[in-house]
Design a protein around this nucleic acid. Structure first.
Lengths: 148, 148
DNA sequence: AACATTCTGTTGTGTATGCAACTAATATTA
DNA sequence: TAATATTAGTTGCATACACAACAGAATGTT
C-alpha cells in the first residue's frame, strides 16, 4: 500500500505548473513576456498603484522575484515605477497604455488554459475543483507562514 | 466581470508548486536531496530498472532535466546507472541500499505535505480533489502532446 | 538628536526546468 | 553494405524562483 500513491498530488501539481508555464511562454512570446511576469500584471489590472512588496505578498512570491519580474515588465513597456516624495523607498506601479490594451489578450490566454485543463469537467466539478485548490493553497500558506 | 478570475487556478497551482518545493527542500536537505530529485526516486521505487528516458516520459519531464536529477541521485549514492551490452545507449537505473532505506522516510515526507495541504478536506473531498487534479493533468498533457 | 530597528527594493547565488544542439549507438532503407 | 534516420543521453543556454546579504529610507526608542 505504500506504493508512493500520495506522490500523485505533488506530481499533478508539478505537471500542471510546468505545462502551464510551457503554454504561457508560448502564448506570451510574441508580447515579449514569459510565464514569470503575467501574474504580476494580472494583479495590477485589479489594483493599480500597488508597491512591489504588496504585489509580492498578494502572490506569496519572494520580493526579489517580484523585483525582477517587474523590471522586465517595465523594460517591455507594460508598467511604470513611480516614486513619490512621501516615502522614497516605495515604488508604486502603474500600467501603461500598452498594458491596458493587452488586458483582454491576457484574459483570453488565461481562460484558454483554464478551458484546456478543465475541458471535461462539469461546471459543478469546475467550481468544486476551484474551491478545493483554494483550500489547499490556504493550507499551504498557513503552514509555511507559521514556520517563519 | 473580467477581473482576472480565471487567473486563480494558475495562481493556486503556482503557489502549491512553489510552496511544495520549499517544503520538500527543507525536508530533504539533511539527505542531500532537493525538490528536483525526489520524483525520480519515487518512480524508481515502483519501477526499478527503468531508463532515464522512460522515467522522464512517465513524469512528463524533459530528458535533460532527468539526466541532471539522476546524476545528482547517483552522486549522492541513491541510484546506480548500469549499461548493458544489448544497447549501449541505455543506462538502466537501480536503487542502492541507501535508497531502499530511505523509502519510508520519503513516504512520510510526502504524506506529510499531503496532510498539510488537505488538512480540512473530508475524505470524500480529498478523493474528489485527486480525481479532478488527475483529470486536469491528463487534459494538460493531451493538449501539449498534440501540439508537437 | 542619536542610535537602533524596520521596511522597500536590489542583487548575488543556487536550484529546477525547458529547449536546442550535439554525440554515440542502434535501426532502417536504398 | 553504405547512407540515412532515429534514439538515449549530455550539455549549453535561458528563465523562474527562493533565500540571504545588502543599501537607503523611514520609524521608533531612549
Amino acid at each position: 500500500m505504500d506504493n508512493m500513491k500520495q506522490q500523485s498530488v505533488g506530481r499533478w501539481i508539478s505537471l500542471l505548473h510546468r505545462y502551464g508555464n510551457v503554454y504561457m511562454n508560448e502564448q506570451l512570446k510574441e508580447y515579449n513576456l514569459g510565464a514569470g511576469q503575467y501574474q504580476f500584471l494580472a494583479v495590477l489590472y485589479d489594483n493599480e498603484g500597488l508597491s512591489q512588496d504588496e504585489i509580492a505578498q498578494q502572490l506569496k512570491m519572494d520580493k526579489g522575484t517580484a523585483a525582477r519580474a517587474i523590471a522586465k515588465l517595465e523594460k517591455e513597456g507594460y508598467v511604470e515605477r513611480k516614486t513619490f516624495s512621501v516615502d522614497k523607498r516605495i515604488k508604486k506601479l502603474y500600467l501603461t497604455d500598452k498594458a491596458h490594451a493587452f488586458k483582454s489578450t491576457l484574459t483570453s490566454i488565461l481562460s484558454g488554459w483554464s478551458s484546456i485543463t478543465t475541458k471535461d469537467l462539469s461546471s459543478e466539478e469546475h467550481a468544486f475543483a476551484m474551491k478545493l485548490l483554494n483550500k489547499m493553497s490556504i493550507n499551504a500558506e498557513n503552514y509555511l507562514d507559521n514556520m517563519k
